[in-house]
Simulated scan of single mutants.
Amino acid sequence: MEFFEVFKRRRSIRRFQDKKVPEEYVKKILEAAFYSPSSRNRRPWHFIVVDDGDLIKKLAQTRPALRFLETAPLAIVVCGDENISSAWVFDASIAAEHIQLAATALGLGACWGHVLDRMHSEEKSAEEYIRELLGIPRHIRILCVIGIGYPAEEKPSHSEKEIMPDRVHYNRFGNLWKIE
């Protein structure tokens, strides 16, 4: 797929076919994640690849916004080591977007399910729930879970109508950049 076409085609897919993602695709997706930039090149990421259906169903119970994982054949938990970098949230976010763009380029669908600073229940954070489920150490923070698979829903590509010229300023706020 042509580079800029990937950006237009990347949509949040929340329903997946019951079809396994090939291992070579998983490797390419992870490779894209490791090519993402990070603050001072500290690379604080950790990725947990989950293809066990029972574990994915438990991840889907993290919070209501992650229920879409129930049909995902693959989930990648995106984490960051806060001991390596105080910018781990930003670095892991960039890696998460690389994961979604790589999935799109491979003809797969993907969706980010936010975990950080969200609650699983009144007593337990979403992060703590996943930490216990997957045995993640305390200094490894959990940003999100990305569900990946072959789409079972069709969404249109983004269009130029979504470009917002009133949000682009030139040299000073309020001096709009002319996007033609």
Rank of each mutant, 00 (worst) to 15 (best):
F4Y: 08
E5Q: 10
E5D: 11
E5C: 07
E5T: 15
F7C: 12
R9P: 00
R10T: 07
R10G: 05
S12K: 11
R15C: 01
F16A: 01
Q17M: 13
V21Q: 04
P22H: 11
E23P: 02
E24R: 12
V26T: 12
V26L: 06
V26P: 07
K27P: 06
K28N: 07
I29M: 05
L30D: 06
E31A: 11
E31K: 12
E31H: 10
E31R: 08
A32K: 11
A33F: 03
A33K: 03
S36H: 07
S36Y: 04
S38R: 07
R40Q: 13
N41K: 13
R42H: 02
R42A: 09
W45H: 08
H46E: 14
H46T: 13
I48T: 00
V50D: 02
D51T: 10
I56A: 04
K58Y: 06
L59V: 13
T62E: 09
T62L: 08
A65I: 06
A65C: 08
L66F: 06
R67P: 00
R67W: 08
E70Y: 11
P73L: 06
P73V: 04
L74R: 00
V78Y: 01
C79D: 02
G80Y: 02
D81N: 14
N83V: 05
S85K: 00
S85Y: 01
S85L: 02
W88A: 00
V89R: 13
F90C: 07
F90Q: 13
D91E: 05
S93K: 01
I94Q: 10
A95D: 02
A96V: 04
A96G: 14
E97N: 15
E97Y: 15
H98W: 07
Q100T: 07
Q100R: 06
L101K: 01
L101D: 02
G107D: 00
G109Y: 03
C111F: 00
C111D: 02
W112D: 10
G113F: 02
H114K: 06
V115I: 15
L116T: 12
D117A: 15
D117G: 12
M119R: 12
S121H: 10
K124N: 04
K124G: 00
S125K: 08
A126G: 15
E128W: 04
E128R: 14
E128C: 07
Y129S: 06
I130M: 04
R131L: 13
E132G: 05
E132M: 05
L133D: 05
L134T: 04
P137R: 10
R138P: 14
R138V: 12
H139T: 12
I140L: 11
R141A: 05
R141Y: 03
R141P: 01
I142A: 03
L143I: 03
C144Y: 00
G149M: 03
Y150E: 04
P151N: 02
E153N: 10
K155F: 11
S157F: 11
S159L: 05
K161M: 09
I163F: 13
P165I: 09
G174S: 08
N175D: 10
N175C: 09
N175H: 14
L176F: 15
L176K: 15
W177C: 13
W177D: 02
K178E: 15
I179P: 06
